[in-house]
Design a protein around this nucleic acid. Structure first.
Lengths: 240, 240
DNA sequence: ACCTGAACACCGTTCAAGT
DNA sequence: ACCTGAACACCGTTCAAGT
């Protein structure tokens, strides 16, 4: 099955009839992806259905199935688009920028995507698209870790540890903010509702840390995790 | 709304009539949780529906809604059960065990849960149950970080960084293994299918790391992430 | 070459009616 | 006090039939 990516608007071999229709096809795919982002932002993870997306685009549901094989292919297209946006946000990497700083900027941009599009993040965080944006992102990330001086095996190990850690934390934040309001409320008042009232006798350590537990926010945790991975990579690089 | 947890079989005030029925209720809840684990293990994340669970238990769907307010409450009960099992697997913590070793054992046990029950992991990894097992787990984890010598704010910061990092990686592994077979196949052959064939010119760094990229496994990444967090915590503790 | 309508096999959840 | 049947408002996906 040939992959028809959005950026495949390359030069056409001959004749301008078939290409025209293929062009229109990718235009419609892009429009569908746009609409899906609007829908996901407005209605959340449960609102992002094929039927509702068709409604949003004012077409029949079956039209969507002519643009995407199934919902999974649509989700991967959304994921590609997010990575594309992230690459734009990162921009050019200055020659002399330390590798750790580049990675910090990428981590910050990933967090931004998560908070803008939690629904799409939740639905795709563990996936691989194989698309052009993902390829460029991998090239960029890997080049940071080779710049660090790590030998191939370790560069790859820390590259994966970095992305998976970042994506894992993003997914967990996104998953929390895509809960329906009542479950969300239940979840993030737990610290004050149950943990603040625990008997000191049974849970002495928790009891002693109640205030610290209730003030910590997810972004600080994310930064700490990212820094931990960068420090581990740097130490390994220095030792090699 | 009073929380009716499975372990709430405390002493009854007077009369043995109401307690009898409440007891039966928790017995049925436990049976439902057992069946849900069987179902999830057999049918995966899409198979774990209220209707199918009712079928598995040979009762009407509406009977389930008398045991659990909604599906979310059932999922939280499954999550509690997993934590319970994890606490059993960790067992007693020897007085003289280094705090990092305790945390390594907990991380290993969490990975085990993920690989045994990917469906439940995916559905609950970002949630808080507020239940008795979760409370004990938090007490255990926090006590490790205070044993390390970290002051309260940092102990809490690293405790959260540790759990969220571990859960994030577990969720990403679980999410991958709960994909339907064809999406799963598509996803984990990407490295050989697309990245192994990339033109060297456009993606020199990726091209140079193809073999390393294709052999790395998720468990090694998980261990690296966990060690990175432990090292960061240890360094902060030493500096304080 | 595209669109439409209708259907299939599912979901979570509720509720009136039975015993 | 419990159970049953039926319904409501949804899903993803397919397919014969139209133009």
């Amino acid at each position: 099955m040939a992959k028809k990516t959005a950026t495949a608007a390359s030069q056409e071999p001959k004749g301008a009839v078939r290409p025209r229709s293929r062009e229109r096809r990718t235009v419609r795919q892009e429009a569908a992806v746009d609409a899906a982002f609007r829908l996901a932002a407005r209605e959340g993870v449960t609102g992002l259905s094929m039927r509702r997306l068709a409604q949003e685009l004012d077409v029949d549901v079956t039209a969507l199935y002519r643009l995407f094989r199934d919902k999974d292919e649509l989700l991967l297209a959304l994921c590609e688009r997010i990575i594309e946006t992230e690459l734009d946000a990162v921009g050019e990497v200055p020659e002399d920028e330390p590798w750790t700083d580049t990675l910090r900027r990428i981590a910050a941009v990933m967090w931004q995507s998560q908070s803008r599009f939690p629904a799409v993040t939740v639905l795709t965080f563990a996936r691989t698209t194989g698309g052009p944006a993902e390829r460029r992102m991998i090239e960029l990330l890997l080049s940071c870790f080779t710049r660090s001086g790590l030998p191939p095996a370790e560069a790859v190990l820390y590259y994966r540890t970095f992305v998976d850690t970042a994506l894992g934390h993003c997914a967990s934040a996104a998953s929390l903010s895509s809960l329906d309001p009542e479950a969300r409320e239940k979840d993030d008042t737990t610290w004050t509702r149950v943990y603040a009232r625990l008997p000191e006798g049974d849970y002495p350590v928790t009891h002693a840390h109640v205030t610290e537990l209730s003030v910590i926010d997810h972004r600080t945790i994310y930064d700490t995790a990212v820094e931990a991975v960068l420090a581990a990579a740097a130490r390994t690089a220095a030792g090699a």
